[in-house]
Design a binder for these strands. Sequence first.
DNA 1: CGTGCTATTTGGTCCGGGTCAATCGGCGCT
DNA 2: AGCGCCGATTGACCCGGACCAAATAGCACG
Lengths: 254, 254
Amino acid sequence: MSRSQVIDFSKIKISCGDCNIHELCLPRGLELQDLEQLEKVIKRTHPLQTGDYLFRAGQEFQYIYALRSGSIKLNLMDEQGNDQILGFYFPGEILGLDAIDKKQHLCSAVALETSSYCAFSFSNLSEICQLVPGLQNQMLRLMSRELTHENELLLMIGTKNAEERMATFLITLSSRFHQLGYSAKEIKLSMSRQEIANYLGLTIETVSRIMSRFQREQLISVNRKQVNIKNPDVLKHISSGSNAGSGKVQWYKQ
Amino acid sequence: MSRSQVIDFSKIKISCGDCNIHELCLPRGLELQDLEQLEKVIKRTHPLQTGDYLFRAGQEFQYIYALRSGSIKLNLMDEQGNDQILGFYFPGEILGLDAIDKKQHLCSAVALETSSYCAFSFSNLSEICQLVPGLQNQMLRLMSRELTHENELLLMIGTKNAEERMATFLITLSSRFHQLGYSAKEIKLSMSRQEIANYLGLTIETVSRIMSRFQREQLISVNRKQVNIKNPDVLKHISSGSNAGSGKVQWYKQ
DNA sequence: CGTGCTATTTGGTCCGGGTCAATCGGCGCT
DNA sequence: AGCGCCGATTGACCCGGACCAAATAGCACG
């Protein structure tokens, strides 16, 4: 190994070891020599601006992406132009894994604000997985986690009414922000009402009305994209669907 | 390697190489020596009867399962008892991958009819993945495919109305059956109306009504669980949502 | 500071599909 | 054959949330 490579590795160590999300996107037991391997396949780029595409549906699959800052929406469109947002992604989360099978992206990923990320060459990454056992498992775990999220979203859209979905959305967002070290109470939404509505399978009017109602009931306070959670307990209660009184949908429980 | 192991391998070769789904669950380029590796981690079992659990939510994750015959529903339940069917599985398909992250099953898998399967020890499997490059990629592809299915389901439930969902369901089922070598026209449903309804995010009455309407319009003929597709073209047309005349939901296309 | 643009909010109206209820029909059991 | 059971069908009613329309509010720009 040449000296220049050592220098490279040193830079790499800083960039990844010090990255604020490294323990999120790298397996715990990863050693320096493994990091060195991993770093070789990272492509660094400029940050994205609001509205920029991380990738587009139809593009050849080449990289998987780790979001370092900002936020990104993932959406899927069918041939009729029906559009469904599948998820919002925040720092430390991975995008692009669903493209592995078809070798091309089926979804598009769009920045909701200025966002930076790392891109990992997938073909190189999967070679390295052969050498680093922990990395392979991490890949599988990440995909499994992605599946779990979609499962929960399906359960929510399939069984919850509009009010419950909104409450669930707010509580989930709050908890994710908290885990990232931000305030769980004071949330800056990076997505529009339209995008929230689409994600939850509702219309923008319904989202707006329910947020107004939540504010009227002192559960939150809203000012455009700034939302303050004032009564998380009641919100959780509503989100769980155990909200008595309101003539809620009684779902089939076979 | 002892002679007895060779004999074992020979049996194995028959059981897997001749398995009617081997090219579905094994990567193309898998060589005999790889097969031998893989066979070591397969646990064989009795077939399941209708209503038997392949695995239950909460169980420790140990195996992933390849369905060999029959059909299985996968469902997810939340703490309130809301139940959502996430998918129906047919021969050649893989179950259990979503449990990798949390190391326990979050969903339950129930046989809809007599079904046989192979169980692969996951921990052993992931060791073998280190040795057999194709197998690792196959694993990732399978998970990716699973993600794609959930994405499509989300898009459908989020954007299609009841009639479109039913048409999509029938067309998709028909095409999957066809790929398995069965008739694309004459379908024997293994799931109840209740299960169809739940999967599609509808009620049993709506499913029943729409199937009656499809029959009245000569698109299908229904007799209990036997469905014959009489006009796949119109069904496809309906499923794609381009069904003019009916005052359908115009979704937001931002 | 007016003008236009877009996002959001709010007020009505309406309908798809959920809910409730009754009936039907196939199947197993005695 | 008669009975009970359970899944499926059909009808009647109603409501949550979509749809349409108008008002309001920021924000950008000349």
